[in-house]
Design a binder for these strands. Sequence first.
DNA 1: TGCTAGCACTCGATTCTACCGAGTGCTAGC
DNA 2: GCTAGCACTCGGTAGAATCGAGTGCTAGCA
Lengths: 349, 349
Amino acid sequence: MARRGSPRNSGESDLDARKATILEAVVAEHIDTAQPVGSTAVAQHADLGVSPATVRNEMVSLEREGYLAQPHTSAGRIPTDKGYRYFVDHLQSGELGSAQQFQLRDFFTGVRGEVEDVLERTSALLAQLSGYTSVVVGTTATHATILSVQLVNLERRHQLLVTVFSDGTVLKHSVVTTDDIDYATCVEASQQLNALLVGTTLESRVQVPSRSDSSSLLIAEAVAVLHAERPTREDEKVFIGGASKVAEVFDSVETVRQVLSILEEELLVVSLVEDMLDRGVSVAIGSEHGYAPLSSTAVVVAPIHVDGVAAGAVGLIGPTRMKYQEVMAAATAVSKNLAQHLEGSAGGD
Amino acid sequence: MARRGSPRNSGESDLDARKATILEAVVAEHIDTAQPVGSTAVAQHADLGVSPATVRNEMVSLEREGYLAQPHTSAGRIPTDKGYRYFVDHLQSGELGSAQQFQLRDFFTGVRGEVEDVLERTSALLAQLSGYTSVVVGTTATHATILSVQLVNLERRHQLLVTVFSDGTVLKHSVVTTDDIDYATCVEASQQLNALLVGTTLESRVQVPSRSDSSSLLIAEAVAVLHAERPTREDEKVFIGGASKVAEVFDSVETVRQVLSILEEELLVVSLVEDMLDRGVSVAIGSEHGYAPLSSTAVVVAPIHVDGVAAGAVGLIGPTRMKYQEVMAAATAVSKNLAQHLEGSAGGD
DNA sequence: TGCTAGCACTCGATTCTACCGAGTGCTAGC
DNA sequence: GCTAGCACTCGGTAGAATCGAGTGCTAGCA
């Protein structure tokens, strides 16, 4: 179902040079005009010294092989998902326009603030650069070690557990106790928690001394609450940028609705992106990603690697006839710059 | 420009009983059907024993007075913004449907977690209850007192300042120093910061001892960074719920785009809502709120009062022909329940 | 064998016309 | 003051005619 950069079975997936040129011309033209592309247009545009009639013959063949489709008998051809796939697989990677490069550099030299803010604004930037709706998924590294743990007494039975990680992440959790907790106990518990947890990660298991004085109960509860955080994907933050672009690039209100409601479900977005990363796919066209409501869209992702480990991804979503070259260039460039920025300032600047 | 609940000049704004009935019938019918409303429909529906012809005469008069408009000569009437305004002003406040009441109760008894999460999910709930896109603006109370301040050493010159407030808010700020800071200095500074700041609010000014050892410099820097937070509106968090509803309730893609791009601008949303609260307006119809791109929409807001002080608002945005009664009921009910919830558990549960 | 010119054909899109009917405004009469 | 009646308006719909882009096929040429 999903194809990668390299062709799978050369018999079908490799076209002879002329067919390839024609296919690419059709895709390029269609991306540009959003209209079915006729044989004459192709013959003119892609200058292989050949008449429209010949092009037509080739197109029939391309249609039989599933790369092109005809909306109706007397119209031009439009690419199928398979056609786009071929196009994307044979795309030489493009460069970002110089104005955009400048904008990008400008943004990342100027940007400061907490990670979350940076991610949010990066998302907006990417949307603006690419012209499509963007997604930035930030994985709060579960590998990060704990730098500090602190219990703060909010009310008699409400404690707030504030944990600071080595990557600058701060998590807060409520800890509710059955007994009232006084200030001294809280401080005491904080100290013990620090001794217990600093240097560990959320993935490590720690031995909690099981006495039953109120301080120990509090500590046990706090550790439990903190470790409950781990297993789910929920600690991945999603930032959507340029949601209004959805209404620009799709012309059917129904599609707009569907895409928006997918984007509303953070978990869905995260798993879509992660799935693609897991499979090593950077572009998913049409139904390739397996999310039915998005079958008329294409998704482009680029991973973010901070110090060699996966730290999330940036993504773009648009119609299948999106400007792949530019979009992929934008996504890659942004993800690289973002990664660099995150490496440069561990957790904020 | 903006009207309130009470009529302004009774000469124009108060209609005689029959006209009022007719106007209300037109509005109600139009909200229901989205079609221009004819005299016959009104005569049947609003049962004042009167013929369509009479209704027609009244409608001409209502049109002259600006309450109704005719899309074209031989069509029925649709309400103008002024017509909707009259309708809303004379609406007796409705009750939430019992199923929805149940859903609401269910939600708020079951909900737990950090404030941000609650607000986010409340926003989704409100969207679902009302059928329109919702906005929840949470003001992180600048009146809250500081419970704890802590500096954590991220890297040599990167400190993370973690501040916990009495309402459960946790803020983090990066503090960058020119000198390397060792662990001991960091702890030392934390203690002094605590002594200095605990019990104060972001609004109070504190005297920072101005010695020039590295610890004192660090402290001064930390206080400066923290207080820099105050003046803007940026500490108000905005949660949008049901963004995809925009594509359901507006039928022009262009309107969808405009509304979405407004919603993208958090600051705009906040000031829109705050402006309405300041003016004591709960419904803004058409151009009443003064945001041109939203001139074909209506906005309904309800303030959130926690322990008597303003703590934000919930809002809904839809077409001017939205179901005001239900929507206002939903907004009020949700804001009340949310306020109660926030009072019940100061900053977490 | 491969390419191309020529040509009949298809079928969506556009335009035009006729027409229907919902709804109006007006007038005359109760 | 209300209403029945009626001529009138005008958007929406349906059908016919037309247009034209683009096809598929065939025959002929290199």
